[in-house]
């Protein structure tokens, strides 16, 4: 390489480097200015999705939700009350009814909601809430964050399709945890199999892990601990 060419090369490289530096600086400034708000937005969205899993009952005091960590919540729902409520209770005497009802006949559903992350998606990590009943069935699934292809791999979004509702009441015993194409029970998305499989597999793995840890620890201890926690939350 001759001298002038080399100088030319350095000049080109220098200009591009300077431009990258300026662009990078601009991005750093905007990133720092928006970082906090975006983080808060993400948390709010996650909370909103979490509450959606428990339905509107959360507002009506029929659900208690206990936070163990950022990624683990325990819940109990008074199903009996919800049924009553639907049949004959008007909103005005709801609270009164609730207090009377708790002692005599409580049909309670309890379970846990965990934040699960799978790296098996088509494009980066998928994070979702998984709510499982203590009986081992799934209560619901809501995706919190993902970068799957819009219109193709994002059918787990409730505003786009009902796919995610299909997990309700599924358990390790009653379900083959894969998409239909691979001999399972779940629909795949048209043109996108990787995304649904990532979610399905992650849930199945998790249910297995839950089952195992329950056996290992002795379920009674966990339950007792949980009962105390719920108690203290009520007081």
């Amino acid at each position: 390489m001759s001298g002038p060419e080399k100088v030319q090369l350095y000049r080109v490289a220098g200009r591009l480097a300077l431009l990258s530096l300026i662009c990078g600086l601009g991005l750093v400034i905007v990133h720092l200015a928006t970082r906090h708000t975006i983080e808060v937005n993400h948390q709010q969205y996650a909370q909103q999705q979490l509450h959606e899993l428990l339905g509107a009952d959360l507002d009506a005091n029929q659900v208690s939700l206990v936070k163990r960590s950022e990624a683990l919540y325990f819940y109990t729902i008074n199903l009996d009350l919800i049924k009553n409520n639907l049949e004959n209770v008007s909103p005005s005497n709801l609270n009164h009814d609730f207090q009377n009802n708790t002692e005599n006949k409580a049909v309670i559903e309890s379970g846990r909601i965990e934040k699960i992350l799978t790296t098996q998606g088509y494009n980066g990590d998928i994070t979702f809430w998984l709510a499982t009943r203590d009986t081992g069935t799934v209560r619901g699934v809501r995706v919190i964050s993902h970068r799957e292809t819009p219109g193709l791999g994002d059918k787990f979004d409730l505003s786009i399709s009902d796919w995610v509702l299909d997990f309700d009441r599924r358990s390790l015993e009653n379900t083959r945890w894969d998409v239909k194409k691979h001999g399972g029970d779940f629909d795949a998305f048209a043109g996108a199999t990787i995304t649904p499989r990532a979610i399905i597999k992650a849930i199945a793995t998790h249910l297995e892990a839950n089952l195992k840890s329950n056996h290992d620890q002795g379920a009674s201890i966990v339950l007792k601990e949980r009962a105390e926690e719920v108690q203290s939350h009520h007081e």
Partner: peptide, 14 residues
């Protein structure tokens, strides 16, 4: 584009 993306995440997250 990245700046725009961050701003939309900040002000119009949904």
């Amino acid at each position: 584009v990245t700046i725009g993306d961050l701003l939309v995440q900040t002000f119009m997250f949904d």
